[in-house]
């Protein structure tokens, strides 16, 4: 057996974990055989443990207590084995190393499971927090969606009265709306068009992606300046680039020659 380490500091430094290298090894090998020194080390450890009390006091958040209880309950309900190591009575000598190995493996498994459980329960807490945030966001979205639906209800309900407001003294501007489906056909409405000069008519044009404009027919306007072209004969499957309305001599022309009064590109 080595000599007792004389300086009291060695016990303190070992307890602090700051003893290193040969000093540490020598101390540990002595400690294994010397109960007196083991007792002195315990005293040093207890004395230095008091230094923990010098930390500025802070109150822990309540969630840790809740987390601990959740973890304990998860373990108690059998989701995680308790890593208690009970001492097995000896049966046969040859079994001992086998049992020791098995116990070791079990202990390692248990420790791994505990750590995993610990980590998972922390992740669960984080997920729950995230879920709460998502729930809040979802509720917000729900509110937005409800509002959008109410807006749509107003806009699409048959009972809805549609009123356009314009400057009181302005002459309403001419406008047109084309609904075009290259397979199903064309529906066109125009509004606020002044009557064409005598001997002239309005003519609607489909401007294809490639090639020259195709006539979609001539139309007249009523007293309010409204006109329409509904399902005119058109070649099928022609992608449109734009629609336009021109003023043409009565009966129309195969290609536009007159002034463009309305034009709209397919967006």
């Amino acid at each position: 057996m080595n000599e007792h380490p004389q300086p009291e500091e060695v016990f303190d430094e070992y307890a602090l974990g700051s003893l290193e290298g040969e000093d540490k090894q020598a101390f540990e090998s002595h400690l294994r055989d010397c109960k007196t020194c083991a007792r002195r080390l315990e005293e040093a450890r207890a004395r230095l443990a008091l230094l923990s009390l010098a930390a500025p006091p802070i109150t822990p958040p309540l969630r840790v207590r809740e987390g601990l209880l959740a973890q304990v309950r998860a373990q108690s309900s059998g989701k995680v084995p308790k890593p208690a190591i009970s001492r097995q009575p000896r049966r046969t000598l040859w079994l001992v190393p086998l049992l020791a190995a098995a116990a070791g493996a079990l202990a390692i498994t248990a420790v791994v499971l505990i750590r995993l459980n610990h980590r998972l329960s922390r992740q669960l807490a984080a997920l729950e927090q995230k879920q709460a945030a998502m729930l809040a966001a979802q509720q917000e979205q729900q509110l937005q969606a409800d509002k959008a639906r109410r807006v749509l209800n107003v806009l699409t309900s048959p009972e809805t009265v549609k009123v356009s407001l314009l400057p009181a003294d302005a002459h309403p501007a001419p406008q047109g709306k084309a609904f075009y489906n290259s397979d199903k056909g064309l529906v066109f409405y125009a509004a606020n068009l002044p009557p064409p000069p005598s001997g002239y008519t309005y003519q609607l044009w489909l401007v294809p992606l490639r090639g020259v404009p195709i006539s979609a027919g001539v139309f007249r306007t009523d007293r309010e300046g409204d006109g329409k072209v509904v399902l005119p004969p058109l070649p099928r499957g022609v992608p449109a680039k734009a629609f336009a309305v021109t003023i043409e001599p009565a009966g129309g022309r195969p290609q536009p020659t007159g002034k463009k009064v309305l034009i709209g590109a397919v967006s």
């Binding site: 006091p57 822990p60 207590r65």
Partner: peptide, 16 residues
């Protein structure tokens, strides 16, 4: 035990 000692345990962990 937690209610008795959580404060000092947390304080030292936070200090470190």
């Amino acid at each position: 035990l937690y209610d008795r000692y959580a404060g000092v345990v947390y304080s030292v962990a936070h200090r470190v």
